[in-house]
Design a protein around this nucleic acid. Structure first.
Length: 116
DNA sequence: GTTCTAACA
DNA sequence: TGTTAGGA
């Protein structure tokens, strides 16, 4: 599929899809016309990219983790178990971020509840 | 009409 | 990231 279809199906802007390629997150083939040709599996790949970006992971980390995820996206592809410690660090960072968000939410809840 | 690259009131 | 210019 071309970039327009992937953008519609993934809910991501064409601009973002080109950016992902620039960052090495996606490797679409090129037609003789120069148009990018994406695979069916890229729809799910984009979803994973969005999830990881939203979690605060850098594109460099995502680029090396993405190819190590099997269909389910939760299994480590055989051949890259050394990523486990990198993922553990990211997980701990996310856990810290969640704690801060919960603290902020509790603070706002308190203010809102105490405001007549 | 769609996509491409490059660049920024 | 959006948007726009200038082409194919």
């Amino acid at each position: 599929m071309r970039i327009g279809e992937l953008a519609r199906r993934s809910g991501v802007s064409i601009r973002a899809l080109r950016y992902y390629e620039e960052q090495g997150l996606l490797r679409p083939h090129r037609r003789s016309s120069g148009y990018r040709e994406y695979a069916e599996t890229d729809v799910r790949a984009v979803a994973r990219i969005r999830t990881l970006l939203a979690a605060g992971l850098g594109t460099a980390v995502i680029a090396e983790v993405l190819p190590c995820m099997v269909d389910s996206g939760e299994i480590l592809a055989p051949g890259c178990p050394e990523l486990v410690d990198v993922l553990a660090v990211e997980r701990d960072r996310i856990t810290g971020a969640i704690d801060e968000l919960q603290a902020a939410r509790a603070m706002l809840n308190g203010i809102i509840a105490a405001t007549p």
